[in-house]
Design a binder for these strands. Structure first.
Length: 423
RNA sequence: GGAGAAAUGGCAGAGUGGUCGAAUGCGGCAGUCUUGAAAACUGUUGAGGGUCACACCUCCGGGGGUUCGAAUCCCUCUUUCUCCGCCA
């Protein structure tokens, strides 16, 4: 959520910046400013009314104490109309504040100046590419065929138990998955991130805090009986650890990592793009989250990108990094880098990580602040990234490491797996 | 799931109708002393709105009510603790 103060002071700048998202923000910002004005006027009227009746109450108290009950009763009568006024003004204020809040929720984050203009994923900017694309045998298979051939992932079984998009990992497939999780967590921990295990269901306030609510509730599974949401990413519970917190400036940076399953309802895709592991309702992911001082958050973002690079380098997977364009940028992000692994057998890039700086956008909703050197509270910056999303890494490994003899295990994972070949 | 108790500032904890945004202790910050640190001492220290700055307003788990006036009384919800039951 944008800060009101920023909207007040930099309206034109915001309108300009949001054009990159192909949004004309002028009408909504005008409405916001108008409501803000109204809110403040109403607040001021209410404050004066309350001040008046506070004063009278004090006087009445004094009078009663000194035995002047009659005079007190005269004053009492005066408070009646003040009470009505303050009730009416209070309701008006609440209604205005709510309307204002709802509008602010609808405005996405301001893109960083590095964000390229553009409408779709085709307009994303490739900024880095590394790793050799292996030349596979013409008989090379996509991962869903390999999964069947070596009996390591069973999609039909998942359909029986739950439904489409809930695969069952079997034997060496399950073990490889567990190895990846352990490996990623170890790497993240070594890089200074503290490992956390967090709840997989969150309440409504947490959903609002990181921006999944309102508007995107359709993407999350909702447990109606208890009004809880299954997390779509560890970002939600991990970042919400700090909701309503004021932290010391000296505590920056705060670096956390966590492994969780992620649950996404993901409506509306089709064909090969959802085959196999490409798109699931339940998948595993290791996430990194950082809380940063505003002056350091972009340096931190670069640091996170460098860190994710090392994971892919170690796995010897060919990948590229994209800077997302305005049209593809997430609602809450100011700048996002996507990592994609090349799936040789599918002949396409698969997104496996998304690393973003949210600046103060989430922090404003979370009321996540720090105290600066003058003792003033200011909003912190939040960042997060996948390190990494498991299924597509798995797909990439299966497809790129396949040989006529079987699927080789990337060297760094062999100690975690306890085997070096799936055959 | 049943019975009882409780929810106050970063933490502990006082406050049962008016002068309480809230005693006190710890912690934090600044200073004195010290070569430096510790200890001791002194001062300071909740958040939000509002204002050029003040004034002023709101907040004692959430919501509602009684009252001229509520941290304090009433209703309700949530959470925590103790005991019992069930259970990985």
């Amino acid at each position: 959520m944008l800060q009101l103060q920023v909207v007040r002071e930099e309206k034109d700048k915001i309108i300009n910046a949001l054009q990159k998202r192909n949004i004309d923000a002028a009408p909504i910002l005008d409405k916001v400013l108008q409501l803000d004005e109204k809110r403040r006027t109403t607040q001021s009227l209410l404050d004066n009314t309350l001040a008046e009746s506070n004063k009278l109450s004090k006087e009445i108290g004094m009078l009663f104490k000194s035995g002047k009950a009659q005079e007190a009763n005269v004053l009492k009568e005066k408070t009646g109309s003040l009470k009505e006024d303050s009730k009416r003004l209070g309701e008006e204020l609440n209604a205005t504040a709510k309307e204002l809040q709802d509008l602010l929720y609808q405005i996405p984050n301001i893109p960083n100046e590095l964000v390229p203009a553009g409408n779709t994923e085709d307009d994303n900017e490739e900024i880095f590419k590394e790793g050799d694309i292996p030349s596979l045998d013409p008989s090379a298979l996509p991962h869903w065929e390999l999964a069947k051939k070596y009996d390591i992932i069973d999609f039909e079984l998942g359909v029986k138990i739950t439904g489409a998009g809930f695969p069952v990992y079997k034997g060496k497939g399950a073990k490889l998955q567990r190895a990846l999780i352990a490996y990623f967590l170890d790497k993240n921990t070594a890089a200074g991130y503290t490992e956390m295990q967090v709840p997989l269901l969150v309440n409504e306030a947490s959903g609002y805090g990181t921006g999944q609510l309102p508007d995107k509730e359709g993407q999350m599974y909702h447990v109606g009986a208890d009004d809880l949401y299954l997390i779509p990413t560890a970002e939600v519970p991990v970042t919400n650890i700090f909701r309503d917190n004021i932290i010391n400036e000296s505590d920056f940076p705060i670096c956390l990592t966590g492994y969780t399953p992620c649950f996404r309802r993901e409506a509306g895709s089709y064909g090969a793009h959802v085959r196999g592991l490409n798109r699931l309702h339940q998948f595993d992911k290791v996430e990194i989250v950082r809380l940063e001082h505003p002056s350091n958050s972009y340096k931190a973002l670069d640091g996170m990108v460098e860190h994710v690079k090392t994971l892919l380098r170690d796995l010897k997977l060919p990948y590229r990094i994209l800077r997302l364009c305005g049209g593809d940028l997430g609602f809450t992000a100011a700048l996002t880098y996507d990592f994609e692994v090349f799936s040789t057998a599918q002949d396409r890039w698969l997104e496996i990580s998304s690393v973003s700086n949210f600046e103060t956008y989430q922090a404003n909703r979370l009321k996540l602040r720090y105290r600066d050197e003058n003792g003033k509270t200011r909003l912190a910056h939040t960042l997060n990234g996948s390190s990494l999303a498991l299924p597509r890494v798995l797909a990439g490994i299966l497809e790129n490491y396949q040989t006529p003899e079987g699927i080789k295990i990337p060297e760094v994972l062999v100690p975690y797996c306890g085997f070096d070949m799936i055959d």
